[in-house]
Simulated assay, not measured.
Amino acid sequence: MKGYERYDEVLDAQQLLLSLIDLARQRGAHPDKLLKGTKLFSSDLSKKNLAKNGLTCSANTLLTVIENCSKLVQGNEISFLLGKRYFPSQLGLLGQALMNCRHLGDMLRLCQCFQLDCFPLMNLQLKHYNKNSYLIFQSAVGKLTKNQQVFITEFMLSALLGAIKYRCGVLPQLTMHLDYPEVQHIEQYHVHLNMKANVNLHFDQQICMFTIASEQLYLPFNDSAMSLKTIALEQISQIDTRPYPISFIQQITNYLNQEILEKDDLSQEGCAQHFGYSSATLKRKLASHQLNYQGIIDAIRSQQAIFQLIVCQHSNEKIAGDLYFNDVSNFRKAFKRWTGMTPNTMREQHCFN
Rank of each mutant, 00 (worst) to 15 (best):
K143W: 13
K143V: 09
K143T: 10
K143D: 06
K143R: 14
L144N: 04
L144M: 11
L144W: 14
L144D: 02
L144Y: 15
T145P: 03
T145I: 10
T145K: 02
K146N: 10
K146D: 11
N147S: 15
Q148A: 14
Q148C: 13
Q149F: 12
Q149D: 09
V150R: 14
V150M: 10
I152W: 06
T153A: 14
T153F: 12
E154I: 01
F155H: 12
F155V: 10
L157Y: 04
L157H: 04
L157S: 01
S158T: 09
S158M: 09
A159I: 04
A159E: 03
L161P: 07
G162P: 04
G162R: 07
A163M: 15
A163I: 07
A163C: 11
A163N: 02
A163F: 05
A163H: 01
I164V: 14
K165V: 00
K165M: 03
Y166Q: 06
Y166A: 01
Y166K: 06
R167I: 07
R167A: 07
R167M: 14
C168D: 00
G169L: 05
V170P: 00
V170M: 01
L171A: 00
L171P: 00
P172Q: 03
P172F: 00
P172C: 03
P172H: 02
Q173S: 13
Q173M: 09
Q173V: 12
Q173H: 09
L174D: 00
L174T: 00
L174R: 01
L174W: 01
T175K: 15
M176T: 03
M176Y: 01
L178F: 10
L178H: 11
L178E: 11
D179G: 08
D179F: 05
D179N: 14
Y180Q: 04
Y180N: 02
P181N: 11
E182A: 14
V183P: 05
H185Q: 11
H185C: 11
H185W: 09
I186Q: 13
I186V: 15
E187T: 00
E187M: 03
E187W: 03
Q188N: 15
Q188P: 07
H190G: 11
H192W: 13
H192L: 10
H192Q: 14
H192F: 15
H192C: 13
